[in-house]
Computed example of a mutant assay.
Amino acid sequence: MPSTSDPYTTLGVADDASAKEIKKAYRALAQQYHPDRNAGDPAAEERFKEIQAAYDLVGDETKRRAYDRARRDPYGGQYEGTPFGGFPGPGGPGRYYRAPDGTYVRVDATGAGPGGDQDAFTFGGGGGLGDIFDQFFGGAGGGGDTAFRGGRDVETTVRLTFEEALAGGKREFRTPGGETVRITIPKGVRDGFKIKLTGKGETAPGPRGPAGDLFITFRVTPDARFSRDGDDLITTETITAVEAMLGTTREVRTATGKTVRLKVKPGTQPGRRLRVKGQGVETDAGQGDLFVLIEVSVPTLSDGAAEGLRAWAEAEGLA
């Protein structure tokens, strides 16, 4: 059972904090210590329960007013101790119960209870403070109810072709929960890029809890002709050894289907990368370049051609 320390201290807010400030503090702490984000960490789970219990108490205006009254006037001004650490309230069946940290909570009764008196509660388990909170404050002393607990985040994958990733645009997508949503694929999206759809995850278990978020990871199918390096694209063009020595011109198709003329200078070496500016991946931030990697194929020569090439190489001092 989480501790019953002062809820304002647990949430890290002043006792005169506004409802908005309390809610903001609760959400930040609940997100930090949520069991889904701290799997296998019992300390984080216990801390989450404390946070939940604190918010269940002071996040509700009615419960908060009762708690604040008890903090200001724990004894009702006139009574001695009674069983279970309780103090009867002035002029009626209400009792104050002391938490381990020394604070007091008033519990007002409305009907007959154990022992025939007018206390409208029964003690379950060990009859401790947590049981009282469970019955009168919606579980503030135990694990807490789920009224404000948010739904879980959900992750899924959307697969794109290379062309779809380059183009981007609108697309309808069915969430794991069965809802159809319209998403915007960023132009030039990379493989592994993730977006968040707020509130499109798992529905909250409680009526006042926020729905979880949906995280979508884009997976882009590799292309047979182009590889990607950042926003640059790389493709390969093969020329003959003679073309590499004498130079040539090639028509190269870009990823968007455009044809550009590429000039290969004489003496180009195998592995040389030639840049075609502005023909890479286009994104909202700009556009990369296209790099053409030159590969050289060596032909098989006839006997006569081989003799002629040898004679030329010897004359040039290359053989």
Rank of each mutant, 00 (worst) to 15 (best):
I51Q: 04
Q52D: 09
Q52M: 14
Q52V: 12
Q52H: 13
Q52K: 14
A53W: 00
A53F: 03
A53I: 11
A53T: 06
A54G: 07
A54R: 10
A54Q: 13
A54F: 08
A54H: 12
Y55K: 08
Y55P: 05
D56G: 14
L57T: 10
L57V: 11
L57Q: 07
V58K: 03
G59C: 10
G59I: 04
G59F: 07
G59W: 05
D60S: 10
D60V: 12
D60M: 09
E61Q: 15
T62H: 09
T62Y: 08
K63H: 10
R64H: 09
R65M: 04
R65G: 01
A66G: 01
A66D: 11
A66V: 02
Y67M: 05
D68G: 03
D68T: 02
D68Q: 15
R69N: 06
R69P: 00
R69Q: 06
A70V: 03
R71M: 15
R71F: 05
R72W: 05
P74F: 11
P74G: 12
P74D: 07
Y75P: 08
Y75Q: 07
Y75I: 13
Y75R: 10
Y75H: 12
G76R: 12
G77K: 13
Q78E: 08
Q78P: 11
Q78S: 10
Y79T: 05
Y79C: 05
E80N: 08
E80V: 05
E80W: 06
E80M: 07
G81F: 12
G81Q: 05
T82M: 11
T82S: 13
P83M: 13
F84M: 02
F84P: 00
G85E: 01
F87H: 03
F87N: 01
F87Y: 10
F87W: 13
P88T: 15
G89K: 01
P90R: 15
P90H: 14
P90T: 13
G91T: 08
G91F: 12
G92F: 07
G92V: 04
P93T: 14
P93L: 06
P93G: 09
G94E: 15
G94D: 15
G94N: 13
R95Q: 14
Y96C: 14
Y96E: 04
Y96P: 00
Y97Q: 01
Y97E: 00
Y97A: 00
Y97V: 02
R98P: 00
R98L: 04
A99E: 03
A99C: 07
A99H: 02
P100L: 09
P100Q: 06
P100H: 13
D101P: 01
D101L: 00
